[in-house]
Design a binder for these strands. Structure first.
Lengths: 202, 202
DNA sequence: ACATGTATGTTAAGGATATTAACATCTGCG
DNA sequence: CGCAGATGTTAATATCCTTAACATACATGT
C-alpha cells in the first residue's frame, strides 16, 4: 500500500488532517481553502469530500487531534507528580496553560460551540481528560481532609481559572495589563490563593 | 436628511452595524453575507464598502458596540454597590458573566485575536472598562488592609475567573460536567474562596 | 486468475460571496 | 448656479465550497 504515484493515496484522511493543522498553524487561523490542503497532499480539490462531509468536519478532526495531544500532555504530568499533592494540581494547570498558549490558533477550533459552529473535540474526547484532572483534585481533597467541598466543583473552578488565564494570555490581554508578569506565575499564585481559601474553610 | 426613498440612506454606517449585530444574534455566528446586511437595510450589496474597508471592519464595529454595552453594564453595577465592599466585586463579576453569557454569539467577535483575525474591540474601549474594575478591587484592598497583594494583579486573576467560567458556560462545558449547578453561584463561591485566601494571607 | 462491488480519486460545473471598478446621484458650499 | 466629494448603484472578477458524473484501484468470493 501507498505506492508512489498511485491513484489512491493510501492515507488521505490522516494526511489531510495533518496538512490542515499545518496550514492553520502557518496562517494563525482556520481560514484556509480546503483545496489548499488537498494541493499540499497532492490530490484534487474534491478528494477531501470523500473523507469529510464538509470543511467543518475536517476542522473537527483537527480539533480531535489537538485534544488528544492535550490529553497526553495532561496524562504525562499527572504521572510525574505525587498523587494528592498540591504541586500535582498546580502542575496540571500549568500543563493546560502551556498547551493552550503554545497553540493559540487551535483555541477557537476547540471551544467555540457558539462561534464558528460545533467545531469542538468530541465530547468523548473531553470527558476523560477532565475527569483525569478531577481525579487529581479528589486525591488532594482526601489528602487534606477537605470534606465540605465537592471535588468536581472544585475541579471546574480550577479549570476555569486556568482556562481564563489561558484565554486572556492568548488574546494579549495579559500582556496589555500586566506586561511584566509571567502567566504561569500568575496561575500558580492564583491557584495557591484559591486552595489556601479552600483549606481555610475546612 | 433621511427622506424616505431617497438615494442616500442618511445613516448607513450605523444601520449596517445594527443590522449586522441582529444577523449575528439570529444565526448565532458571524457567518452572514455582507450583502444580507445590505439588503436588510435596503441598499445594494456594494454599498457597505463605502463605510467599511471589508467585512472584518464591519465586525469590528459591531464588537465596539458590544464593548460599549459591557462598559455601561459594568459602570451601572459599580455605582449600585458600596465602594470597597466584597459584594461590589462579586457583583461586577456577575455582571460580566451575565453580559457575556447572554450574548454568546458575540464572544468570538471580541476576544479572538488569534482566531478570526484582529476583530476585537479597540484597545481604547477595553482599558477603561477593566480599570474600572481595578478601581473596585483597589478600594476593597484598602478597606481590608490588604497590602501584600497588587490590586492590579488581583484584578486580573479575578477577571480570569469570571472570564473562564463565562467561556466554559458559553461552550456548554459547565452544563456537561455540573448540570445541576448555576454559573453565577459557581462564580460567587469561587471568588469568595479566592478572596478568603487573599485575606488569610494578609 | 477473474469478475464485480465498493472505496477512493478525478474533472467539470454550479452557486455564494467578497471585493473592486466604473458610473450615477445627492448635498453642501463657494 | 455649479462643482467637489460623499454616498449609492450596477456589473464584473476571483475565490471557494460543494456536488455530480465519471474513472480507477483494491478486495473478495469463486
Amino acid at each position: 500500500m501507498n505506492k508512489c504515484g498511485s491513484y489512491h493515496h493510501g492515507n488521505l484522511r490522516n494526511a489531510l488532517i495533518v496538512a490542515a493543522a499545518e496550514l492553520i498553524e502557518e496562517r494563525g487561523s482556520p481560514d484556509f481553502a480546503i483545496s489548499e490542503a488537498a494541493k499540499v497532499v497532492g490530490v484534487s480539490p474534491a478528494a477531501p469530500y470523500r473523507h469529510f462531509k464538509d470543511k467543518e468536519a475536517l476542522l473537527a478532526a483537527v480539533a480531535d487531534l489537538y485534544f488528544m495531544g492535550l490529553a497526553e500532555a495532561t496524562q504525562a504530568t499527572r504521572e510525574a507528580f505525587p498523587t494528592g499533592s498540591r504541586e500535582s494540581i498546580l502542575a496540571l494547570g500549568n500543563t493546560y496553560l502551556s498547551y493552550v498558549s503554545q497553540r493559540p490558533e487551535f483555541y477557537n477550533l476547540i471551544w467555540n460551540e457558539g462561534g464558528h459552529g460545533p467545531l469542538n473535540g468530541s465530547e468523548a474526547e473531553r470527558r476523560p481528560g477532565f475527569y483525569n484532572f478531577v481525579g487529581a483534585v479528589e486525591a488532594w481533597c482526601q489528602h487534606n481532609a477537605i470534606t465540605d467541598s465537592d471535588p468536581l466543583e472544585l475541579s471546574v473552578k480550577l479549570w476555569a481559572m486556568a482556562h481564563g488565564l489561558s484565554v486572556l494570555n492568548i488574546n494579549g490581554q495579559l500582556a496589555l495589563f500586566l506586561p511584566e508578569t509571567d502567566v504561569a506565575t500568575l496561575l500558580s499564585s492564583s491557584a495557591n490563593t484559591f486552595l489556601d481559601g479552600v483549606e481555610g474553610k475546612a
